[in-house]
């Protein structure tokens, strides 16, 4: 966290005058407040912050932020945000999306924005259900899940957001529970600092249509044993007694207990988020017991706009065209007298 710059804002400066209309008890409130608390820590001007959302419960988010914002159309926020960032590289551009918005109707934009690595921050509110349309299964709903549109159980296997994202070349992927605002806030700050597309998946509970979807990982009583919160450069240790950790056994990640079978802390894998090879990151994303949270991947790479700008500067340096008239009157012209 930058400490040199004096803080210009408090979270209140990022609250709009609009009444927040999410259902009581929704994790969306936690995410909203975490974003509002993270922004003053980033050292950026409010005038330079833009939130672009698609359609869905989560996509009302921009209305509640006292920044620039656009509540756009279903699934297209990554493409709109790309246009904003390419038009003005100095802006801090955030995409607010849900599991249906990003991985169903907007799946194409979602994978391509990650592939290009434009410097955007995408917060994915994954509640594994369609909320705004009142309770149909989503592309992350579980097989067998009974919803309004699958009364006898869902028959479509789910996407894992992290697997999909890393498969689409995401350089930054983090996952966090919807009820851990402190860690969430820190991840948002790191995501903004990271130059490139950052994807943060929030395991967000929908208390109305899919209550408890993540409780086996996020309930306070089980969290310490069922979540492994990873930090770059630190051994991947978890558990109430901080005595469990990950080791690599042949090609599989396994949980080992420190002090048992001769396992010491030195045997536990140290998390390297910056590694370009995504193999281990994918394995971490796939783990279910424990589920891995924190910044899983943070591989620094050139951004799309850096490539574009470099190319533009090179072309400009070589070109003899400075004004459009130079072009219009160049080459094969002829005079009529």
């Amino acid at each position: 966290m930058e400490t040199t710059a004096e803080k210009k804002y408090s979270y209140k400066d990022f609250e709009s005058d609009q009444e927040v209309r999410w259902c009581p008890g929704c994790d969306d409130y936690v995410i909203l407040r975490s974003v509002q608390k993270a922004l003053p820590e980033m050292g950026i001007d409010r005038k330079d912050v833009v939130f672009i959302s698609g359609i869905g419960c989560s996509s009302r988010f921009p209305y509640y932020m006292n920044t620039y914002g656009m509540h756009s159309i279903h699934g297209r926020a990554p493409a709109i945000a790309s246009g904003v960032k390419l038009a003005n590289n100095d802006l801090s551009v955030w995409v607010i999306t849900g599991d249906g918005d990003s991985m169903a109707i907007g799946g194409n934009h979602f994978i391509h924005v990650l592939r290009r690595n434009i410097d955007l921050n995408i917060i994915l509110f994954n509640n594994k259900i369609y909320g705004l349309t009142k309770g149909q299964f989503s592309p992350t709903s579980l097989v067998g899940q009974k919803t309004k549109s699958s009364p006898y159980g869902n028959t479509q296997p789910p996407f894992s957001a992290g697997e999909l994202a890393i498969g689409a070349q995401a350089r930054f992927f983090a996952r966090i529970g919807g009820n851990t605002p402190k860690e969430m806030t820190e991840i948002f700050i790191d995501a903004e600092k990271f130059k490139g597309t950052s994807l943060i998946e929030v395991m967000q509970n929908c208390p109305i249509f899919n209550d408890g979807a993540y409780s086996q990982f996020t309930d306070k009583a089980v969290r310490a044993d069922k979540q492994l919160y990873v930090e770059h450069g630190k051994p991947m240790i978890f558990g109430t007694d901080r005595n469990k950790g990950l080791i690599l056994n042949k090609l599989k990640l396994e949980v080992a207990t420190i002090g048992e079978n001769g396992v010491t802390e030195a045997d536990i894998l140290v998390h390297d988020a910056t590694e370009s090879d995504p193999t281990l990151h994918q394995m971490l994303v796939r783990m279910q017991d424990p589920i891995v949270t924190g910044i899983i991947r943070m591989y620094k790479d050139i951004t799309f706009e850096q490539r574009e700008n470099e190319s533009m500067e090179q072309v400009k340096a070589k070109s003899s065209f400075h004004k459009t008239d130079d072009l219009f009157f160049s080459g094969d012209t002829y005079e009529v007298h």
Partner: peptide, 27 residues
């Protein structure tokens, strides 16, 4: 025509073509 600062963005589909255009106009 990058020499005039023109930004051309070949998008992933027709919808992203106009969506990025709306974003650039907003900015």
């Amino acid at each position: 025509h990058k020499h005039f600062g023109v930004k051309t963005f070949q998008a992933e589909d027709e919808i992203a073509g106009i969506a990025s255009t709306i974003g650039a106009s907003f900015a």
